[in-house]
């Protein structure tokens, strides 16, 4: 089973990369940009068919290692 994990900075945490990307896109002529936030995308292949177990495990992975909960949020998607 393939799981997709999105890790982003929490809503009000400063995202220096995001704002610089936004400015660069604006200077390339994309004028209607309001805001850009960037993050990490991680794919995890799991050797299980049980969605519930997988979900639990993936959440645990995020909390123990993949995300830093002090500044980041995460979202898990299972295909």
């Amino acid at each position: 089973m393939l799981a997709k994990i999105y890790i982003t900075l929490k809503k009000d945490v400063l995202d220096p990369q995001g704002s610089v990307i936004a400015n660069s896109l604006k200077s390339l002529g994309f004028n209607n940009i309001e805001d850009v936030r960037q993050g990490k995308f991680i794919e995890v292949k799991l050797n299980t068919e049980n969605k519930e177990t997988a979900n639990k495990q993936l959440n645990e992975m995020c909390e123990k290692l993949l995300a830093n909960l002090v500044i980041e949020d995460y979202k898990v998607e299972i295909d």
Partner: peptide, 13 residues
């Protein structure tokens, strides 16, 4: 540009 996104990417524009 802080090397944000990819080193050199934004400077090249």
């Amino acid at each position: 540009y802080g090397d944000y996104l990819r080193c050199g990417a934004m400077a090249s524009t």
